[in-house]
């Protein structure tokens, strides 16, 4: 990331303007040619520095009112296999291995499960219980109660 990439990021990280001449408008703000801006953004997209360009829906507003962070205690030597199996389920949006904090926190596998109701989420959780079988030494569901902050990445301006 050089200085120009950084300027592009700080100019676009809170969102794109809703104007017809979109890239021209941003380029003008940065005092560069629109072609250079597009070239840099394409490069960042290709390298994965930009995951995607698009809309982030508020899943509550779309009716996905039940959102559980499911956390599972599985053997460390099985976690890659089990994590990949969980991640492949269509209703799991994020799946990670994270560190335990014994004895406070025994869980090492995290999977976000979304549904339109708690009932729907419970049914999906049962599928995970079946999938993990006796490899699972315990699990909990942490339902979200409210979003306290959601701004995404914010680089400081240079």
């Amino acid at each position: 990331m050089d200085e120009l990439d950084r300027k592009i990021i700080t100019a676009t990280q809170s969102g794109l303007p809703l104007v017809k001449e979109l890239y021209q408008a941003i380029a003008q703000q940065l005092n560069i040619e629109p072609d250079l801006l597009k070239q840099r953004m394409k490069k960042m997209l290709k390298s994965g520095q930009i995951r995607r360009i698009g809309a982030v829906p508020n899943h509550y507003k779309l009716g996905y009112k039940a959102n559980a962070m499911s956390v599972w205690n599985v053997p460390d030597d099985m976690i890659t296999k089990l994590g990949n199996q969980l991640g492949a389920l269509s209703f799991v949006s994020h799946c990670y291995e994270r560190p335990r904090f014994l004895p406070d926190w025994p869980y090492n596998l995290f999977a976000m499960i979304h549904g339109k109701s708690k009932q729907e989420v419970s049914e999906k959780v049962q599928q995970v219980v079946t999938l993990l079988g006796n490899h699972c030494a315990g699990y909990e569901l942490l339902y979200s109660k409210q979003i306290l902050k959601k701004t995404g990445l914010r680089l400081k301006k240079v």
């Binding site: 990439d5 794109l16 809703l18 520095q49 930009i50 995607r52 698009g54 809309a55 829906p57 507003k61």
Partner: peptide, 30 residues
């Protein structure tokens, strides 16, 4: 295009969309 921009503005305004733009991967940016 005008209709799209108007509707997109409303969806952002009423918070149906949290944001619209590039999603940066901070880990790939160092």
């Amino acid at each position: 295009e005008d209709d799209l921009l108007t509707r997109l503005g409303i969806l952002l305004e009423d918070k149906t969309l949290i944001r619209f733009g590039p999603m940066y991967d901070i880990q790939k940016l160092g």
